[in-house]
Design a protein around this nucleic acid. Structure first.
Lengths: 282, 282
DNA sequence: AGAAAAAATGAAATTTTATTTCATAATGAA
DNA sequence: TTCATTATGAAATAAAATTTCATTTTTTCT
């Protein structure tokens, strides 16, 4: 809890001298964080031990610890939270809200991820004969992006955002193939079926979805990406961004597992693009 | 400025021993605010004066003052810094680093955005006869995603990730058309040409790119998305995520500008998907 | 390569700051 | 008023941070 609030709440639990301290602090907290205990004591016309006792009464370890708490309370910035866009927001406001919500959701997505599952997924991916990414709608672009990344690793990789192609591809899969199925809701019928088909054909199926969905039940490994999707505007927003971050994690894990020679190769792929670009002048 | 960012920015200005201090702090800033200078020195295997010098190099008055700044940075909700993935990172570590870097980059992207330009872009988009999104490589998926969103607004919208189609489309554009060209580097020759062609044909060209690039010079409106791309692994990472967040902002601005009846329509689009999904049981 | 200069570093001394101890003063209940 | 309880601050102590300075390392210049 904010220590400034705490001070004003507990004002009547304090002794007379301690209250003097409280008042000085409340009057100008930003000065206090730069004062020594002696300076504050003088300011409040009381002794140093009193300041110390005051700090302890607020459940801090002592004066320096108290200042730390105070500094944190003063740090004006609100932590990133999912703030909903409002009808009358200015461009400034809705821009901030969207960026902050996205960051907040990335944070919660990270917390929902299990690194063991990531490890297992990277294991499986590095040993795959073929990797397929399937997604529909907003998740299609995640699959698309994944292809763009894994393509550089000289592994056979495909992506489909077409139901029929996905089915056909799933039916043709075999042991050693990895199929990654991406769906925020995890309830899209055709995708759940595709996952199930691929599994029947002995492919390893990795699901990127929300916890406990029908899709999750069909997968060999589930990479849980839980985000509080803002549904006010009826469009997928943060979910796909969290999924993309997860793709980055998998791609990174893949390159690390493959070792440093492999990364030189990646550099070559990148350098090959140079001639298509205007030179930098700096 | 956030002191954690500052530390990582100035990492190469630091001496060897000071860098050790920096690393210990970045690894676990929340531990550090409860450590004495002696404890931190021991942790980093260097002497106390070195910690002190480190603090001063970051323009703080000394160690206690540094801790205050650190505490404020942590309270700010952003302990997020662009941290580079290391060869020997565990899955836990690289996952955290990627998520945190992504968040840090979103933060800096937001700062680089000019809300006036966003407003102008939304103006132009709401009045467009036709909207086209062009991107290549990693930016292609951003264009793809934008189509997926704007498609719901019953405006004619196309996306191309093919150079020839982009050229043809640009040549056929006319007054009242809006062409959005997406490129992190802003140096991809064919895209710069496409932007220039579209402009010659009187389309309004909006660029989503980094400040001051060749592409930026060809655009009617430039939406600046500056991110410190992590090039260690030679793959685009945060840039496309920041671009996607910007697409969310534009789409949101669009729906807000169009008013509430319009949003009911969006709900209908979304509801139309229901039959393709498994029902939620809760 | 080797010498001189500059920069970085840590041990020890010093200073500053915080905490504890303890004696005294204020407060309040019988 | 008297005794007990609590509050307070002076002084002593402890802890923490900073400075000084000698030594080591690095860089620069023959």
């Amino acid at each position: 809890m904010n220590i400034l609030e705490k001070i004003s709440n507990e004002l009547d639990m304090l002794s007379k001298s301690e209250r003097k301290v409280a008042e000085v602090i409340l009057a100008s907290p930003s000065t206090v964080i730069h004062s020594s205990i002696a300076a504050l004591a003088k300011q409040a016309n009381i002794s140093e031990p009193t300041v110390n006792r005051f700090c302890r009464r607020l459940d801090t370890k002592g004066y320096p610890d108290f200042k730390l708490h105070l500094a944190q309370s003063l740090a004006n910035g609100t932590p990133y939270v999912n703030r909903h866009v409002d009808e009358n927001d200015t461009a400034e406001e809705y821009t901030s809200k969207i960026f902050e919500s996205t960051m907040a959701n990335l944070e919660s997505a990270r917390k929902s991820l299990d690194t063991n599952d990531i490890n297992r997924s990277v294991d499986v991916l590095t040993q795959a004969n073929k990797i397929s990414f399937f997604g529909l709608g907003a998740s299609a672009i995640v699959a698309h992006d994944a292809q763009n990344k894994f393509f550089r690793f000289d592994v056979p990789v495909v992506y489909f955002d077409d139901i029929l192609m996905q089915r056909m591809s799933a039916i043709n899969s075999r042991q050693g193939d990895v199929v990654i199925v991406i769906s925020h809701t995890g309830r899209t019928k055709s995708l759940v079926e595709v996952a199930s088909l691929a599994k029947e054909n002995d492919a390893t199926v990795i699901g990127i979805t929300t916890k406990g969905t029908p899709l999750a039940k069909e997968c060999s490994i589930v990479l849980t990406v839980d985000v509080a999707e803002d549904t006010d505007l009826y469009m997928p927003m943060s979910s796909r961004i969290a999924q993309l971050a997860l793709i980055d994690v998998l791609a990174t894990g893949f390159t690390l597992r493959r070792g440093s020679k492999f990364r030189d190769n990646l550099k070559k792929v990148k350098d090959s693009l140079r001639s298509s670009r205007f030179e930098r002048k700096d």
